[in-house]
């Protein structure tokens, strides 16, 4: 019947349009939801139950750069250089302390909230914590240490020697907390690790002699050992023995250490961002941790002198944060 054929055609067409429309709708809803999540996430930084304060105690170029980068991630954050702003009673405050002085300052003033220490070495972090009275239970503290992760340093050592290699770490009574950390990370990287302790009453040469047969010395920012007076002796003595020093900063590598991983400002700040985001979602504050985003530097003169082959895989040994598109 003609009406039935036309009707069927209309129904068919309508049905096809309807299917297309449904598919488009699904896509649109998906996009809306995705955007909404981002809005919500952005709003969480700004409008949820947290105030953000970036605390510094100096205005050097480096500190300004750190703050500038952090403000991109936390646009509504307040910056303060001395006294922390008294926080509202309705919102929890997340303090991001830049450097050891800022960390000490926040720790002494905060009565509640979350303190994230950044750009402070593990030794300084622990020393400050130990020197301060016990924190109220309403204050949670964590850190992203300034120095490289020992796990990454162990991996770098294996890459440099192209095979598992024995590593010695020299600690003092200020860095005893590192021993279990180092043992754990050595186990993770299947590194044969030996640990020696150095006391200020002991001659430096003695402890260096005890590790004389170990090919790699892991340098940690322990001021008892790696200070301005000892650096010269350590680097010259280990070099004469064909030992290599790995760590702990670019300056030490330039002074004569062989290589180190290191983290840039953006690397640390990205990790701060992730740590806080995870806290917002889970309500649990992560333990103090080493940087996970890094690059690698090598003293090529020292490497060549020690007949070591440094290929691109070592120079490119790195991990960078995923850059979010605006």
């Amino acid at each position: 019947m003609p009406w039935n054929s036309a009707g069927n055609a209309v129904r068919y067409i309508f049905c096809r349009i309807s299917r297309v429309f449904k598919r488009i709708s699904i896509v649109v809803v998906f996009l809306i939801l995705t955007f909404a999540v981002e809005l919500v996430r952005a709003e969480r930084h700004d409008t949820q139950s947290y105030d953000f304060q970036i605390v510094t105690t100096d205005d050097t170029g480096a500190t300004k750069k750190i703050v500038e980068d952090l403000l991109k991630k936390f646009p509504s954050a307040q910056t303060t250089s001395d006294s922390i702003n008294r926080h509202s009673k309705t919102k929890k405050t997340v303090f991001i302390a830049i450097g050891p002085s800022a960390f000490r300052s926040v720790l002494s003033q905060a009565r509640d909230g979350v303190i994230v220490s950044a750009f402070t070495s593990s030794q300084a972090y622990h020393a400050i914590l130990e020197s301060m009275p016990e924190q109220p239970r309403t204050v949670s503290v964590t850190a992203i240490y300034a120095e490289p992760s020992p796990l990454l340093q162990f991996r770098l050592a294996s890459m440099l020697f192209k095979r598992p290699v024995k590593v010695a770490a020299i600690l003092s009574n200020k860095t005893t907390y590192l021993e279990p950390v180092l043992q754990h990370m050595a186990s993770q990287s299947r590194t044969d690790l030996s640990i020696e302790y150095y006391g200020t009453t002991e001659a430096l040469n003695r402890v260096l002699t005890r590790v004389a047969d170990v090919p790699v010395i892991l340098a940690t920012p322990d001021s008892t050992l790696f200070n301005a007076e000892n650096i010269h002796t350590i680097l010259v003595t280990t070099y004469r023995r064909n030992q290599v020093v790995i760590g702990f900063s670019a300056a030490l590598v330039k002074a004569g250490a062989l290589a180190s991983t290191y983290s840039e400002i953006e690397d640390i700040n990205a990790q701060v961002d992730e740590l806080i985001a995870d806290y917002e979602v889970s309500g649990k504050l992560a333990e103090p941790q080493f940087p996970k985003y890094f690059s690698t530097i090598v003293n090529e003169n020292v490497a060549r002198s020690l007949n070591m082959v440094v290929d691109d895989s070592i120079k490119n040994f790195s991990r960078k944060p995923v850059v979010r598109q605006p």
Binding site: P100, S121, A124, P221, S223, N227, S249, A250, E264, D267
Partner: peptide, 10 residues
């Protein structure tokens, strides 16, 4: 990168 702050701790 962050050499200075590490050094200040060391």
């Amino acid at each position: 990168a962050i050499t200075g702050l590490i050094l200040s701790a060391v």
